[in-house]
Design a protein around this nucleic acid. Sequence first.
DNA 1: AATGAATGAGGTTTCATTCAT
DNA 2: GATGAATGAAACCTCATTCAT
Lengths: 199, 199, 199, 199
Amino acid sequence: MTPLSEEQLEKKRHDRKIQILAAAIKVFAENGIKLTKISVIAKEAGISHGLLYHYFQSKEEVLHASLEWATAGTNELFDEITRHDFSALEKIRHFTKIALSEGNSDTFRVIQHVMRAKDLVLEVTNDLIEKQGSVYIKQLLPLFSQAQADGEIIEDDPQELLALFLTVITGILMEGDQEYWSHNLDHKVNLILRMFTAR
Amino acid sequence: MTPLSEEQLEKKRHDRKIQILAAAIKVFAENGIKLTKISVIAKEAGISHGLLYHYFQSKEEVLHASLEWATAGTNELFDEITRHDFSALEKIRHFTKIALSEGNSDTFRVIQHVMRAKDLVLEVTNDLIEKQGSVYIKQLLPLFSQAQADGEIIEDDPQELLALFLTVITGILMEGDQEYWSHNLDHKVNLILRMFTAR
Amino acid sequence: MTPLSEEQLEKKRHDRKIQILAAAIKVFAENGIKLTKISVIAKEAGISHGLLYHYFQSKEEVLHASLEWATAGTNELFDEITRHDFSALEKIRHFTKIALSEGNSDTFRVIQHVMRAKDLVLEVTNDLIEKQGSVYIKQLLPLFSQAQADGEIIEDDPQELLALFLTVITGILMEGDQEYWSHNLDHKVNLILRMFTAR
Amino acid sequence: MTPLSEEQLEKKRHDRKIQILAAAIKVFAENGIKLTKISVIAKEAGISHGLLYHYFQSKEEVLHASLEWATAGTNELFDEITRHDFSALEKIRHFTKIALSEGNSDTFRVIQHVMRAKDLVLEVTNDLIEKQGSVYIKQLLPLFSQAQADGEIIEDDPQELLALFLTVITGILMEGDQEYWSHNLDHKVNLILRMFTAR
DNA sequence: AATGAATGAGGTTTCATTCAT
DNA sequence: GATGAATGAAACCTCATTCAT
């Protein structure tokens, strides 16, 4: 039989890689970086650990690639948000809902894990995380300032407000009970935003 | 030298244990349960790892005992709070400040670590954590209800409000930048409480 | 395209095998048996490792076949030498030069590698090596004896002399700096032969 | 019971280290660097592999330390040789005998293995080897020059003669049949030296 | 009580070999 | 024939735990 065409092979490789990266983000989010066993990622992806090493050189590379892949997805989020014709506060609310809704939490959690174990992680991965963190700030800070100008959130150092906001979001995501949070989400988001919203 | 009396010996043994447990809580909080090495706890306590096994049977026992010891400390916190002649909201505010102020975070963090890795931990330790969690709820829920009755926090399912509150507190403590939080603490606590306070 | 005839197919198959065996000898010589990866042999031969297994059953078979092929080549060397109308010492000198000149060393080196790791190698391969060793002895020993009879090399147990000679040759070949040895080869050969030559 | 005194402990540690280093040199010499399993060194030393890692950080460190230890021994050899009131040729002969006699070969062989796999080895280890190589040259080259001046070895570039000499010695040592060589050693050494000796 | 030597189970990574295409 | 995806045994190294001193 003839071997697969170059194109078919490339697609298969690509699919497999995505499959591994998705499994990796999930498992890394659950167990942290160091405690995640390559064998568990492989099992989650439904392959042998040997095959995983066919696609990636090391655990560190799996981590880096999975974060690259996952953050790319996150960034689309902002594109979507800014496309809408919402007020600044509405955009913050929208971001909060999406961040807290099921399925989007793994990436945040892995980032959090990396930040707590910077020395166990490649330099490039730390850079990636830092860059990603600044994406959040760069995108959200103007929204906070604008919402203040609109009189929708309280007068205070917007950087401080944003820092508190991100800490709270991150804390909730780290907590892990996503099912609980996806329940009655609108209401919970409103409560969180009450931290900043003008009365 | 005269040998120590039975009583003195017992006291010395007890002090040693406390010394180890304090070291353990600190190191467990920093690194998580599984990633904490017995040797690091021993070093933090200023003893050899061999001696640690003289006082405790296993890492799991160290974890359990350190949590028992630390949560006992936490419980005194409530005694202190309820002694004051504060309003319910003031008591919540007081609790929040103490929880977030430097030095008190380790216990929360270890509890959080345990909850995220329940299967790596003894049944009794999980029970202890659960009981401790219910202590918070048992102590704080009446305060939330009372504050509602006082019209100081919003009308809403108090259980939900408490859950959100605890998640946010926990999230902040897990974030780890305690120095940042001890700065301008009153203001930050006010912002957090705005989630619930009536306007 | 017309399909290849049976005979052409056979030839093509044979050529492929030779191509693999030549690559194998080269790579085995360079890295030793165990450290040589099948994938590297395949790459050297310009094929995929999968195809290599189409022609040979296992790494051990590749080793065996490559040695069979290479030693057959070596044996032609003796035919050539004995055809010349040289004195015994001249024949020994000729053999030495050819053995040390670039390109002929790989076989010696692989043999040497096998002899140092007899237990990692098939019985039949060990037999092959042993037989090949005895070829050298069978061919060279008469030359040494004759050269003694001619008074060209010293009186001594010719077996001992031969053993020393082969050890020295092998040692030089294992050393690996073939470029150095191909330089001013005649002179170096003379020095080596001085071990035995009568004054 | 009281723990061992500092001094006793230090001695025990030192003895164990030597025991491991001796085992390591032997096993490295036999199997090469990469193929030597840490578990085999440990077994040869009569300990568990875990304990080996109690004394050394890594396989690379074992290799380095064992070479340091073994070459220190080799260097004493030259001290001993130069103390004698021998002629230059006699000193060369003495060196040759000692190098070829049983027990001294392992170090040479490990060095040889390292030189053939420079990229698998720490920079410092390569430096150590290089330095050791230059020790041989620095010590032996004057002896060759002197022996020429004495008319005991032939006129030729002494560097070339030394290179040939070292290659031959190394080759013999790599060959591995030390038992054979220790037999009738004087005679064999004489044959080897005939490569250079004036007639 | 006190130390640190000693053990071995378990996690990461490599590579010979098989198999689907 | 031809490719490279897929598997799993085996090797290095870490660390909880035990034990001799």
